[in-house]
């Protein structure tokens, strides 16, 4: 499992951890039943405080990505990939909608918006 923490990022460290574990799950790098390192071990490896990794695991558990067994540790939960995809799509839809609203406010024509999207996507 690869996790890279940025100290200068505006995103809190625990969120960086949850997001990266989530993407590993979505990408299929972490499969159902895989054991995660213990909270304290991960904290040591990442050189962050224990409370940070603890919070990251708690968030992941709340969202159903992982489950914990007392005394054994935390494991990747079974994922409904289809549902997750749909959720993600919905988020993208919302974000695009916000971009469209903004464009309309300044009378940006659809072609130009499309062009912008093309350029950004290529990057």
């Amino acid at each position: 499992m690869q996790i890279i923490i940025s100290n200068s990022s505006k995103e809190p460290i625990y969120e960086q951890i949850t997001n990266q574990i989530k993407s590993s799950i979505l990408a299929g790098d972490l499969c159902k039943g895989t054991a995660l390192p213990s909270i304290r071990k991960l904290a040591k490896e990442l050189q962050v405080s224990v409370i940070t990794t603890k919070r990251a695991y708690e968030e992941l558990e709340k969202e159903g990505f992982i489950y914990s067994i007392v005394g054994k540790g935390s494991f990747i939960a079974e994922q409904n990939l289809e549902m997750m995809r749909e959720k993600k799509l919905k988020v993208i839809e919302e974000q695009l909608m916000a971009a469209i609203t903004n464009s309309r406010e300044m009378d940006l024509p659809f072609e130009e918006l499309q062009q912008l999207l093309n350029i950004l996507y290529e990057e």
Binding site: S38, R40, K41, A43, K44, Q47, V50
Partner: peptide, 10 residues
């Protein structure tokens, strides 16, 4: 600091 984290592991 690294050592302190190590001794916190258990």
């Amino acid at each position: 600091l690294h050592l302190l984290q190590e001794i916190m592991e258990d």
